[in-house]
Design a protein around this nucleic acid. Structure first.
Length: 439
DNA sequence: TCTGGGGTCCTAGGACCC
DNA sequence: TCTGGGGTCCTAGGACCC
């Protein structure tokens, strides 16, 4: 098997992958600026202070769970002195940027996978005079020293194995934050100790099918034949199988682009009952969706808008608005998608007797921008449209998000109207909120 | 006052048609 | 009188993750 039969999983041209995962990220961000909360129970709430989305081990011990509705558990939180934070995405986004910047100094190739995870290409030619394990431990120390965020790291010949390594690093303190799967013996042990459902890329459906065949660990899976895997689990399953056996064949850049992109929010208080109010919200959601689309250099040809009243208020009239439009040509143009969404909303608007508590925009039928098919009778000058959108992107990148926006969005940022009674300061992005050190 | 997240993917099951 | 198959397409709803 591809040079893995020797005890060392390595040769001189070998390329290694590191996966760095921030521990309990949102919570760690809050604790950086509140060291007094390092060993006390802490929770972070979702948008609108709706429910708990992140919690410290101390909070878990009190029986709290992700998804608990805040106003219901609030008396219990107060009784137990639990520290509560509204989510502060400005802070988390900026802390993430700092972590990623530091990681970038350790590799010629950094793949940011999510707000709290990144892959590092660690080819041996890049690492001088230290072992992989020492190099990894240094990364872990540097990130915590530079940002205050604790991280776990896995290093292995493939991204899938590196992910497994990072889970061991998180679980066992003896790894000093970094678990290296760099020998055949370690690879086998790691796979035997890993349930198949904990493997990156293995979903519920595959787990069920495998369980029926008596396959429960990652190791069991690697003992199937390539033919059998491909026949039952397609090329995607085969890639995971090869990665687990030590052959790299998945890259973040090649991961399939999203099939749907959605932005939605709940409205605090009594909700929205005017067409103008919903127009403003939906327009803000389109703006967000366009940003996400363009970030992955993609375009969509199906747009859906929806709005609904509170499902919990059976004493009030309830309503569910939904409308979908199919565009002849996929687009990521803010004016075009906004106009489409506004038309859908105006056509489906019924009456102001309903208090809408939540609304959103979904785009689907997404394709890479390079794959957009021209249309003979297309009334839109796509070249000019893209030039305009690029100009909008450029101004917003330089002057800040929302500098150029559609008129229907109104002047103010939608996010400022969300409920957030327990928000920490924007310590790192607003001079007036910078932390003060008493002299 | 009165409070109930957000995002993505998959699938079962219905509508419709031959 | 009531039933019988099989394919495609679509969507509501659920599972799962953070």
């Amino acid at each position: 098997m591809l040079g893995l039969s020797n005890s060392k999983l390595s040769n001189s041209q070998m390329c290694w992958f590191g996966l760095v995962d921030c521990n309990n990220f949102y919570l760690s961000c809050e604790r950086v600026f509140r060291p007094d909360l390092r060993s006390t129970p802490v929770v972070v709430l979702s948008n609108n202070d709706g429910c708990i989305i992140a919690l410290s081990p101390e909070a878990k011990k009190l029986g709290l769970k992700r998804g608990d509705v805040f106003f219901k558990v609030r008396p219990m939180l107060e009784r137990n002195g639990v520290a509560v934070f509204s989510s502060n995405y400005t802070l988390y986004g900026d802390m993430s940027r700092r972590v990623m910047w530091l990681l970038g100094t350790f590799t010629p190739e950094l793949e940011v996978y999510s707000i709290d995870e990144a892959f590092l290409n660690l080819s041996e030619s890049f690492i001088k005079d230290v072992t992989l394990k020492q190099y990894g431990e240094n990364i872990v120390r540097t990130v915590i020293k530079g940002t205050g965020i604790p991280v776990s790291m896995g290093i292995a010949p493939t991204r899938t194995l590196a992910k497994i390594g990072s889970k061991f690093a998180k679980k066992y303190i003896g790894y000093h934050g970094c678990c290296c799967i760099d020998t055949e013996a370690k690879r086998q042990t790691a796979l035997r100790l890993t349930s198949i459902e904990d493997v990156w890329g293995v979903g519920r459906k595959i787990v069920t099918k495998l369980a029926a065949r008596g396959i429960h660990t990652a190791w069991d899976f690697t003992q199937m034949t390539a033919d059998e895997v491909k026949r039952n689990f397609t090329i995607t399953g085969l890639r995971t199988w090869r990665e687990l056996r030590g052959e790299p064949c998945i890259s973040v850049a090649e991961l399939p682009i999203n099939k749907t992109i959605c932005t939605s929010r709940s409205f605090p208080g009594s909700g929205i009952n005017t067409l103008e109010g919903l127009e403003e919200a939906i327009a803000a959601f389109v703006d967000e969706v366009v940003r996400k689309l363009r970030k992955q250099k993609a375009a969509a040809s199906t747009v859906t808008i929806f709005a609904f009243t509170s499902p919990h208020r059976i004493d009030q009239p309830s309503d569910f608005l939904q409308a979908t439009a199919h565009l002849p040509i996929a687009t990521s143009s803010l004016p075009e998608l906004t106009a489409t969404a506004m038309q859908l909303l105006r056509e489906s608007w019924r009456s102001s007797q309903f208090q809408y508590k939540k609304a959103g925009v979904v785009v689907s039928d997404i394709c890479p921008a390079t794959a957009i098919e021209p249309h003979l009778f297309d009334p839109i000058d796509r070249f000019r449209q893209e030039a305009l959108q690029k100009a909008i992107d450029a101004v917003n990148a330089k002057q800040g998000r929302g500098t150029v926006h559609t008129a229907v969005q109104g002047g103010h940022h939608f996010s400022e109207r969300l409920k957030a009674d327990y928000k920490s300061p924007a310590y790192t992005t607003d001079l007036s909120q910078i932390i003060r050190v008493k002299s």
